[in-house]
Design a protein around this nucleic acid. Structure first.
Lengths: 192, 192
DNA sequence: TAGGCAACCTAACGTTCGTTAGCAAATTTT
DNA sequence: AAAATTTGCTAACGAACGTTAGGTTGCCTA
């Protein structure tokens, strides 16, 4: 089941892999061209600038993350269930596209204005979704948390290292990883 | 209580701040010189190369982290107590030097060989300290964890975002942060 | 007071960078 | 068959890069 990619998508995909491994700044257009088997100047038949690639990856992934948690959310469920669903959705996106996720998580700071500010606003809105769940959990007496912002950042931080090691052929699949992380974050390490 | 810094230390400190904010590759020697109020060439009276700065920061921080968890470790304590002590020590180092920590955590991949490999070996040895505690906790029936490596990386990942927001004048001090994180990781979010 | 050294300078090196201009071939669309 | 689009090329641009060479100044010490 090979998906046919346009040349532009090929460039984006190859660039994503390089951005993940060496970082945006340390990846030259000549590196990218070399990887594609063409000349650097040829890339400019398809894209306007190096940063355009970064922008496309960052905002496409932002969309993916939003769609995933929106679809997974069931407003009538308990806070614990909603949090577990959000964690699972987040992990699904992370594992389905580890390279783009790495770029999304680490390289966004090389965006120029106004994209940089726009990206941060999106990220904040995404985190707000989690904060809202935590708030609900606190109000319902389900969660005991010192600070909701603190809790959300800890949770997301605990999830966002997956891209560094996840391999589709590894011993844990995305669902198992999500389940283990949700259990750890909700119940802790301690035997109960 | 102003600490007097040698010029070399000043360069290292200023470079660390720039490396944190823009990344190693996106920071030029002319940027650094500008920040110091001198010419780029003048920096080479004090250091041998741009990478030397990165090496010094990375390996100095590695040392700091090792010393902190070694000092904090009490072998006779329970696994929970040992883990809490390790988390506290780790957070103390992170908060005491947020800029150098950011470089240590993110910029090490720009080290050239053999320093790159040496760094990874050190990091693995550091993580092994945590793995050992987790193993002990599992054996003693204290912890319930799907995979010890998985647990350690989740813990460290949850800790290592602190440098992005911690400010000494903030409402939580290092001890409170460490305590909150240890509670969250050991007991989970759920009210018990 | 002479020597040494720390600190910084100007000038420049060779290289790499992102990008543009202008053109050619192949493929697809009309 | 003609026209338009896609995909690539060579050549080159100006700018920025890390770094070196060689010199000047001012302070500290013998």
């Amino acid at each position: 089941m090979e998906v046919i990619l346009s040349r532009k998508e090929q460039i984006e995909q190859t660039a994503t892999a390089l951005f993940k491994n060496r970082g945006f700044s340390a990846t030259s257009m000549r590196d990218l061209a070399n990887q594609l088997g063409i000349e650097a100047a040829s890339i400019y038949s398809h894209i306007k600038s190096k940063e355009e690639i970064l922008q496309r990856v960052c905002f496409r992934m932002a969309n993916e993350f939003f769609e995933a948690i929106d679809q997974a959310d069931v407003h009538t469920a308990s806070a614990s269930e909603r949090l577990q669903a959000a964690i699972t959705a987040h992990v699904q996106v992370l594992t389905k596209n580890t390279e783009a996720s790495a770029v999304f998580l680490h390289e966004w700071r090389h965006l120029s204005e106004p994209h940089h500010a726009e990206f941060l606003a999106l990220r904040n809105r995404y985190e707000e979704h989690f904060r809202e769940i935590i708030r609900e959990g606190i109000k319902a007496g389900e969660f005991k948390v010192p600070d909701e912002k603190f809790a959300v950042l800890t949770i997301l931080s605990a999830l966002n290292w997956i891209h560094t090691w996840y391999k589709p052929e590894g011993k844990m699949n995305a669902e198992e990883i999500a389940a283990n992380l949700a259990t750890m974050l909700l119940n802790g390490l301690k035997q109960t």
